[in-house]
Design a protein around this nucleic acid. Sequence first.
RNA 1: GGCCCCGUAGCUCAGUGGAUAGAGCAGCAGCCUUCGAAGCUGUUGGUCGGGAGUCCGAAUCUCCCCGGGGUCGCCA
Length: 555
Amino acid sequence: MTAPRDLVATAIRDALRRAATDRGWTGADVAVDVERPADPGHGDYASTVALKLARPLRKSPREIAEEIRSRVATGDGIAAVEVAGHGFINVRLDTSWLARQVDDIVSAGTDFGRLDALKGQRIQVEFVSANPTGPLTLGNARGGPLGDVLSSLLAFAGAAVTREYYVEDGGTQVKHFGESIAVRYRQLLGENVELSPEGYPADYVKDLAAQIKQRDGDRYRSLSLEEQGKIFAKIGIDWVVEDAQRVMAKLGIRFDEWFRQSSFIESGYFQKTIDDLRRMGRLVDRDGAVWFDAPEMPEDKEGWVVIRSNGDPLYLGTDIAYHRLCLFERGFDKKIDVWGANTHYHLVQMKVALAAFDIDERRWEVVLYQYVRFLNEGVIQRMGKRTGQFLLLEDVLDAVGVDATRFFLLQRSADAPLDFDLELAVQQSNDNPVYYVQYAHARIASIFRTAAERGLTVDGADVSALTSPAELDLVRLCLRFPELVAEVLEHKGVHLFTSYALELAGAFHSFYRDNRVVDEGDVPRSKARLRLVQAVQVALRQTLGLLGVSAPEKM
RNA sequence: GGCCCCGUAGCUCAGUGGAUAGAGCAGCAGCCUUCGAAGCUGUUGGUCGGGAGUCCGAAUCUCCCCGGGGUCGCCA
């Protein structure tokens, strides 16, 4: 089906081209976009192209608009074109054409809004990727729905998407984690040892130590702390990853790949990347460490460490190798990372480093989201596994449910920080806007149940009976879904789907109040309206589907 | 101090170049013998942090300032 916006844009584009030829305009070769006017009195779509052409053509916008307007072909969906204001070209759609879209929406079904813009592209979306040193917190979780919905959207646009969780099972934090378990283990064996300042104080570390002691007893007693740490870190990471898989599934997210850092350390790919960088003259040795030389960043004249003086690879070093691996060896056309905003400087470093490998910058994108903070006894706090201050994702899921959690995390723009008050969330979970949307969907399902009880079906519906402003406005709103898909694909603001879902649900609830759908006294109208609400249900289902929120038949 | 994000109604936030700036919550006044009241209708509420600039047009872009958060480590 042709999207109305494209239909209108094409018609105006053609009219402009004809006007330019007829009048001998030069410099009129500009992009023609149409938008939805805020005021419905201004029609269904409006173009500001005449305003933009006023200066290059040295003519009044109204004059240009008039030349274009008189050449726009009406019929085929377009009912009327008029010039308004300073030179807006307002277009009104043909209402019978609009009504016919209802049939197209319903028959499109799960394909409604689908695109093939990204067909043939292999895209990896990497998200969450929390340090594997503890259970997932609500802070880690924010990237979950963001990355998941972005992945769904890209797939909806035709891409072959891989959802990837990067498990950083090496490095300093993992070492601290393992040794923290070892300290707790030793304490259980009666030794008088204390956690180091870098250690992890949280209870799950004690639980892990207890599990190890219960299973293996004191067989690690004679090992050094470092040796114990190595063994326990492995056990700990396996436990954390398994737990993360379980909780992510609970959040409705299924990753295609849990990709371990150790895999490319062991394969030698990390070393190969270091060797190549050295050959390219991008590395210098200083103080026993290996530094990436970044003359592009004069304020960081020392460069950045990629291998520590103790020989351990550092975050930046492994991440360079990891990204190179994804973009050059693993066959992804594009990698999109969903990262917390605290990594923004890492992003700057990575851009410089990957440029050294001539990676086309369009092949790598980062979506940064602001941090989640939480309210603890009325005080706002940052979450951190190392501080032992956090709110577990699983606790939130158990308290407020998966749909409400997802919707809550998706409602705000990634650029906006998010404060979370668990007590308030539990108390208000019934007020969560997600139920408003789901209720609209369930209500429509209920209408169909009622219709069936009264012997009415949608079969043979003639949508030309849909002529009232209320009915047509509902169609217009449904038709906005495909436009929104295209917009979000361009700007990545997946939170806009929640706004749209709320708006569509609200429009339906109002319609429902004022317009009886099932009316045995007027079967043709009932059938047409059943078809209409079916289209609304399709649009709602498509939106909720992208958001990963269920669309219940009953609540 | 450098860099990133934010500042919009009492509160939480949408809107990022178009015409008269929106929603939810909170407040106030109403609506269930009629397809689900987890709903609906009406109403109160704004120097879009401040200033300058660009533009036919700025909440939106640029610059300066103010306020809040983040980050600048041989942590990730």
